[in-house]
């Protein structure tokens, strides 16, 4: 596979959320505001790309028996970096994301990509695969949060879109709408992209 194919594959064809059904927790929890989704997506992309790089570099020196714990600790180190950066530069977003930043560690997308790709492939390919998977995840988050923020608050990235005539749909702010929207997205992608009939 060329590097471009690797990227397309991990961002779209094998998209972590709609195809592999991984990382559902955070894609539902942080999508009530677009800003939170964007920051979360970039945080995951950062942690994922760097963990892929590290795991790929040490892949020949890691014994199979301690592979899992080594990968978990590498991920945890990068997630702590993301957490400290958010607390320093974006304290408001950090407070709203709450435990979900730490939960990047148990986000199955990371473990999935490390196990399936980075532990078998050279560093540069692994980083491209990690960035692709991270951006594919960010894209899904932004699509869901676009609908939820627009109808739930009448805003996008905090800017008012609808005027004072708009009544906020409180269902969009609450948990159930996230489940429905993700189901609709998966349905749409299955029909249009994978042509499941």
């Amino acid at each position: 596979m060329t590097r471009k194919e690797i990227f397309i594959n991990s961002a779209f064809t094998d998209n972590a959320v709609w195809k592999q059904i991984l990382g559902i927790c955070s894609s539902l929890a942080v999508t009530n505001l677009m800003m939170n989704s964007l920051i979360m997506g970039l945080g995951v992309t950062f942690a994922l790309a760097l963990s892929c790089l590290t795991v790929s570099i040490i892949r020949e020196y890691t014994p199979r028996s301690v592979r899992m714990i080594a990968q978990t600790l590498i991920m945890a180190a990068y997630v702590i970096m993301v957490d400290i950066m958010l607390k320093a530069f974006l304290p408001d977003v950090s407070k709203q994301l709450g435990p979900y930043v730490g939960l990047i560690i148990t986000n199955c997308i990371l473990m999935g990509r490390l196990e399936a790709f980075a532990s078998k492939n050279p560093p540069l390919d692994s980083v491209i695969d990690g960035i692709g998977a991270g951006l594919g995840y960010t894209m899904v988050l932004l699509v869901i949060s676009f609908v939820r923020e627009l109808f739930g608050f009448g805003t996008l990235f905090g800017f008012k879109i609808f005027g004072s005539w708009w009544t906020n749909w409180s269902i969009m702010v609450m948990a159930p709408s996230a489940f429905f929207l993700l189901a609709l997205l998966i349905w749409f992608v299955n029909n249009k992209y994978y042509k499941v009939v």
Partner: peptide, 10 residues
């Protein structure tokens, strides 16, 4: 068909 499995569970 497109909803089978995960979609309908969600």
């Amino acid at each position: 068909a497109g909803l089978r499995g995960t979609g309908i569970s969600l």
